[in-house]
């Protein structure tokens, strides 16, 4: 399966089927993030239900504090 994450194309195994699994795969499971899936912002509670398909685009950002 091919996903476009933050503008970068990424090839992933089909077992990475949900947003939660993708975050685990990327080592971001416990990180505070905001995620947009195909231009739709996701509520945290829905990460588990949202299924990924070939060609999906995701934007993943994390808040930082420095300034």
């Amino acid at each position: 399966m091919n996903l476009v994450i933050n503008g970068n194309s990424m090839e992933l195994g089909d077992e990475v089927s949900s947003v939660t699994m993708l975050l685990e795969h990327l080592g971001l499971a416990e990180k505070p993030l905001i995620i947009e899936h195909n231009q739709d912002i996701l509520q945290k509670e829905h990460y588990r239900q949202v299924m990924l398909e070939n060609g999906d685009t995701l934007e993943i950002v994390h808040f930082v504090g420095g300034g």
Binding site: N6, G7, E36, I41, Q43, E59, V61
Partner: peptide, 12 residues
């Protein structure tokens, strides 16, 4: 990393 992200977060 040459990344630029913009998100509509009204729903949050």
């Amino acid at each position: 990393k040459n990344e630029h992200m913009e998100m509509e977060i009204e729903k949050l």
